[in-house]
Design a protein around this nucleic acid. Structure first.
Length: 294
DNA sequence: ACCCAGGCCCTTG
DNA sequence: CAAGGGCATGGG
């Protein structure tokens, strides 16, 4: 098991996977459902090892082990995905980039806001939702807002949702909150069942398609084989994977649900059970090469 | 005034 | 099946 020092905090937090983090006064503050997380860089200048201090409100001991997925065998993951030469080179550029484990409900609604949207605006909308429907918590003399509960989103009017900047996604949020509540869809159940079955369940949610479902599966339901394919990842695949080119996907074009399924299967056969980690490295790399904004 | 943004839904052919 | 348009909103 590797140590927490091997994790690159800034890289992991700021890689387009977990939106509700903010850096203030040399500390990162994150919203994890009802809990405020805090990370402070305590590295001594004369010490060469990076040291972080972890705090939270309410108290949540050793939360970093859960959130930063220290139960993963990171060495094994890196070894396996590095069997592919192209991926190995990209992985080596970003040591310590991790996938974070998000709270499922928060993750579902976060990525519901992501369609046809850009990352700064996704964060903007999520902050508005938290401010309007979350609970205020004062921590370090600052105001924070917890992520809205399922019930509060269930009860929210479309007008109130619209005021957060959701646009046409407001009805997705409302419908999805109602579906999960009414069907009593259990997040723990989704964690237990296989990738394919869990994805099938998520696709029933209004506003959740192939790509967003994969984001939810990878970032909150422990399905490390999930490989979200967005426009950037697709561009990478077209340039680097012969098999994808064979499917005759036009460059820079959208893909249909069936094309997505086909490519998704090929990818998971190709990169293996940790395809999700491949995606994270590739995504970071291609966004950096194209002057990311987040 | 245009175009774009971690897509998805709906309608046609 | 696939192709294509529409979609709220704000920033370049």
């Amino acid at each position: 098991m590797d140590s927490i020092q091997d994790i690159n905090i800034d890289l992991s937090i700021n890689s387009g996977q977990y939106f509700l983090w903010e850096k203030m006064k040399k500390s990162w503050y994150g919203i994890y459902g009802e809990t405020i997380l805090k990370i402070t860089d305590k590295t001594n200048e004369r010490n060469d090892e990076t040291v972080y201090e972890y705090d939270s409100y309410p108290e949540y001991n050793d939360w970093q082990k859960h959130i930063f997925r220290q139960d993963d065998n990171y060495d094994e993951i890196i070894y396996e995905i590095s069997q592919n030469e192209k991926i190995r080179k990209i992985v080596q550029k970003y040591p310590g980039l991790r996938i974070l484990r998000q709270k499922p409900i928060q993750c579902i609604f976060s990525f519901l806001c992501s369609s046809n949207n850009n990352i700064p605006r996704i964060r903007f909308i999520l902050r508005n939702l938290s401010r309007k429907f979350g609970r205020k918590i004062v921590f370090d003399d600052m105001d924070f807002y917890t992520f809205p509960s399922l019930t509060s989103l269930y009860n929210a009017s479309i007008q109130d949702l619209l005021s957060c900047g959701l646009g046409y996604r407001a009805r997705f949020v409302s419908n999805t909150a109602k579906y999960i509540s009414n069907k009593q869809l259990s997040m723990e159940y989704l964690k237990k069942i296989d990738y394919n079955y869990a994805k099938e369940e998520l696709l029933k949610l209004d506003g959740v398609g192939e790509k967003i479902a994969d984001c939810i599966l990878l970032f909150s339901l422990d399905k490390l084989e999930a490989f979200p394919i967005d426009v950037w990842i697709l561009k990478f695949l077209c340039q680097n994977i012969e098999q994808i080119t064979k499917t005759e996907v036009k460059m820079n074009s959208k893909i249909t649900s069936n094309q997505y399924k086909k490519i998704s299967k090929e990818i998971r056969d190709h990169y293996g059970r940790y395809s999700g980690y491949v995606q994270q490295y590739v995504y970071y790399n291609i966004r950096e090469e194209n002057g990311r904004k987040w």
